[in-house]
Design a protein around this nucleic acid. Structure first.
Length: 467
RNA sequence: GGUCCUAUCGUCUAGAGGCCUAGGACGUGGCCCUCUCAAGGCUAAAACACGGGUUCGAAUCCCGUUAGGACCGCCA
């Protein structure tokens, strides 16, 4: 039997971190077992579902590289199927018509709550024999007994059926409800492994009962622990960015997020870094933890930095383009890009940071940080720069090694420590005191820019001394 | 209120009764390297929620307590 998993989001918002991890684990499990990964959109709540959300979810999954083999299927297009299954159960006596109105139910619920009773449907329409000319919902007739959920992550969990109410399958307007659609779909789509958040555990016995009523074989259930925010409550907007796309916009690499999410709730010994292939090879439900975990952005950043260092400079240059664009810089054809990226990739945590660090390579004119200029763009830097300009102009090859030789020669002749020369040059070339190493940086920016900036600095010093 | 889940450093986790003086990673402190900032190397502090059992022996098994969390709709 081939493994079939599914991700079934409801399109009422963006793809968030929790959903992404659920999708990832389903995808990983399907890939691991050479099975199929199905995408199903649970849009039975027509009022809350939006086209934008559907697109956002698809975009998020695509960005993460979680490709699906079948779908997306839409529950809103399968209402007839649910309806016929509901009436099938009705005919078999496994469900019944309920004529209670929502208003009545609400009233009774409040009364029950007030008296401290569980707000459960009392089953008053269960044995009704009359059939009034009135709208009705179809309710499932929960049988007596005990239902055991066999969960590969949590173990066996047993529920007394008495605690489960006769849930509505079909609303009085004819639309199906969540718990019913899920079962009909998972059954008809031959889903073998239902991997989802553990907030669904309490729904599972209901669903198992429906599976049985429908005469379908049960899938394997695996309930993943929740992802929490720093304060240990369910991750939400107030914990900062929770949408997957927000991380893309921050300059997080998709695989960094994938690696991070995989390790949140799952582990493989002490290993932290996993390639996509390794994840597929090593992922297993048995090593998924039982307890919920706190989302830690710092660790994500660390992983991102790791993957930035690992990524090929040319590829990284391409990924950086949109972030430079945000600063009004169009660097698409710039041959220096891979070199520039190389000077930056060891010192940033995100692509956004990298773009910010790269600005000085592209600006027409740089602006000196006042404090830096005051401290470093002063004599004898003007003389030293003049010497540098002359020697650098004479270089056959403007490479990191050649530039370093020039610098070493100059400091030796003048009896200086490298820092005494490097810092002023850094200010002259970048405007500030923090940058990549000067030799690699000069090579990356190119001779023309390096020399013109040194000359500007000399001019600047002349003018300040004169003034 | 009812049902259910969970509990190892601040955080993610390893740990399947003796390999545990509890390991790794992020973060934090220190040192080294060094042209700035990083990166890198070394290093330090830091945890088995509590109480009872079971056992020769418990982080690991059982029970209870406590604390978190989820769910209880004609939402999904």
């Amino acid at each position: 039997m081939t493994v079939r998993t599914r991700f079934a989001p409801s399109p009422t918002g963006y793809l968030h971190i929790g959903g992404a991890r659920t999708a990832l684990f389903n995808w990983l499990f399907a890939r691991r077992h050479k099975g199929k990964f199905v995408l199903r959109i649970e849009d039975t709540d027509v009022a809350r579902s939006t086209k934008e959300s559907i697109q956002a979810i698809l975009d998020g999954m695509t960005w993460l590289g979680l490709n699906w083999d079948e779908g997306p299927f839409f529950q809103s297009q399968m209402f007839d199927t649910y309806r016929s299954h509901a009436y099938g159960l009705l005919e078999k006596g496994l469900a019944y018509r309920c004529y209670c109105t929502p208003a009545e139910l609400e009233e009774r619920r409040e009364a029950a709550l007030k008296e401290g009773r569980p707000p459960k449907y009392d089953g008053r329409c269960r044995n009704r024999t009359d059939a009034p000319e009135a709208p009705y919902a179809i309710r499932f007739k929960v049988p007596p007994g005990v239902t055991i959920v066999r969960d590969v992550i949590k173990g066996n969990i047993s529920f007394d059926n008495a605690s489960i109410e006769d849930l509505v399958l079909l609303r009085s307007d004819g639309t199906p409800t969540y718990n019913f659609c899920v079962v009909v779909d998972d059954a008809t789509m031959d889903i073998t492994h239902v991997i989802r958040g553990d907030d669904h555990i309490n729904n599972t016995p209901k669903q198992i009962l429906i599976y049985k009523a429908l005469g379908h074989k049960l899938p394997v259930f695996a309930h993943l622990p929740m992802i929490l925010g720093q304060d240990k409550t369910r991750l939400s907007k107030r914990h900062g960015a929770t949408s997957v796309m927000a991380y893309r916009d921050m300059g997080i690499l998709p695989h960094a997020l994938v690696n991070y999410l995989a390790r949140l709730g799952w582990s493989h010994g002490d290993q932290e870094i996993f390639s996509r292939a390794e994840l597929i090879e090593k992922f297993d439900l048995e090593s998924v933890g039982k307890s919920s975990g706190v989302f830690n952005p710092e660790k994500l950043l660390w992983l991102n930095q790791h993957y930035i260092k690992e990524t090929d400079p040319t590829e990284l240059g391409g990924l950086l383009l949109p972030f430079l664009e945000e600063h009004g810089i169009k660097a698409a054809g710039d041959q220096r890009l891979p070199g520039i990226v190389t000077t930056l990739k060891e010192r940033v945590k995100t692509l956004k940071e990298m773009a910010e660090g790269a600005l000085f390579y592209f600006r027409e004119k740089i602006v000196y940080d006042p404090k830096a200029a005051e401290k470093f763009l002063v004599p004898p830097s003007d003389e030293l720069f003049t010497i540098l300009i002359e020697r650098l102009s004479g270089l056959d090859e403007f490479t990191e090694a050649e530039i370093e030789r020039v610098f070493n020669a100059v400091i030796e002749e003048k009896g200086l420590k490298l820092g005494k020369l490097a810092q002023p040059v850094r200010v002259a070339l970048t405007g500030g005191t923090v940058s990549p190493g000067i030799f690699e940086m000069m090579a990356a920016m190119g001779r023309d820019m390096a020399l013109s900036r040194l000359k500007s600095a000399v001019q600047y010093m002349k003018s300040t001394v004169a003034g």
